[in-house]
């Protein structure tokens, strides 16, 4: 009995040795990977917090406890609170139509939805300036009626919504396509209303991917710089989001405060990545359970 396991072990080891590299090559590759990641990920990550805490904890906290910083934080939260729910509703609606029905132009729509990710952030802002800016099409009319869109909150909202449109949809579409429509068809055939079907069948099936899409959408909404920078006008206390506040502080040679505000955005990024890892584990175990059943 024992000898059999030993032979089996040896067999595994021998097979393993067929498809792996020598220790030297392995160590070289791991070192190369770590060197690259150290230069581009680890050092920057450590640098953000070191620079932010250069003047100690009190200097760090002072960077947030002033009118301009608080206004920037409030504006960023407000922008995300508007943009994320809107894009979540769009994502669910688009994914429902695309995944559960066969219609003309479906493939084109799937490709189009990803377009905002391919466009330069500067252009995402530029298109709204051309529409609503002082020299834009609607500019004179807006000025007459005293409505401000560019260099004001509506412009920031529009630009943020534009760059974050695809995030929820692109998480849901492949998932809902792979889930098929049998479960929902069963619910409808058994007499459920559309809303009952959505809440009891569809939503439980997509909740983790929906959450993941919302988290990604939120991270980008709070962190967007280029598009917002074009439409914001950088008015302190009024149209400055957190990333724009970081830029202003940095350009004023107030590096400690710039990195302090940046460290908050970095924490948001770290939370986003942790949530991603957790949700990936959750969905992996969920699909394993399903396939076992």
């Amino acid at each position: 009995m024992n000898s059999v396991t030993i032979i089996a072990d040896k067999d595994v080891q021998w097979k393993e040795s067929l498809t792996t590299e020598s220790t030297l090559v392995r160590r070289l590759l791991i070192s190369a990977a770590f060197l690259y990641l150290t230069l581009f990920l680890f050092i920057p990550l450590v640098a953000i917090f070191t620079e932010a805490l250069k003047h100690g904890l009190s200097g760090y906290i002072d960077s947030f406890l002033n009118e301009d910083a608080l206004a920037a934080i409030r504006l960023t939260l407000l922008v995300a609170a508007v943009a994320v729910p809107l894009n979540a509703v769009f994502g669910v609606a688009a994914a429902w139509a695309i995944a559960k029905f066969e219609f003309v132009g479906k493939q084109a729509l799937i490709t189009l939805i990803d377009m905002p990710l391919a466009v330069s952030p500067v252009i995402s802002g530029l298109i709204y300036v051309l529409l609503f800016g002082a020299q834009g099409w609607l500019g004179p009319w807006l000025a007459e009626h005293d409505i401000k869109i560019i260099f004001a909150l509506p412009g920031i909202l529009l630009a943020t919504i534009f760059v974050t449109v695809p995030f929820v949809a692109r998480e849901l579409i492949p998932l809902m396509q792979s889930q098929g429509r049998e479960e929902e068809e069963a619910a409808i055939t058994l007499g459920a209303s559309g809303w009952q079907m959505f809440v009891r069948v569809t939503l439980p099936n997509i909740k983790w991917s929906l959450l993941y899409g919302v988290i990604l959408c939120n991270a980008r909404a709070m962190g967007e710089f280029g598009a917002v920078s074009v439409v914001s006008g950088h008015i302190r206390g009024l149209t400055n989001t957190m990333p724009l506040h970081v830029e202003i502080l940095y350009n004023e040679y107030n590096a400690v405060s710039a990195f302090a505000v940046a460290s908050l955005l970095t924490l948001l990024a770290i939370v986003t990545l942790s949530a991603k890892t957790l949700i990936e584990r959750k969905t992996a175990s969920a699909t394993r359970l399903k396939s076992q059943r």
């Binding site: 990977a33 620079e51 990333p243 940046a262 990024a269």
Partner: peptide, 30 residues
């Protein structure tokens, strides 16, 4: 490491910008 690879996706670009500048400036870390 696997989780951190996505950091450049998640980190706001302005934060990446000032951090890389601080590291690679003539008096920076690198």
């Amino acid at each position: 490491v696997d989780a951190l690879v996505d950091l450049p996706f998640a980190l706001p670009t302005a934060v990446a910008g000032i951090t890389l500048t601080a590291i690679y400036a003539p008096n920076g870390w690198i």
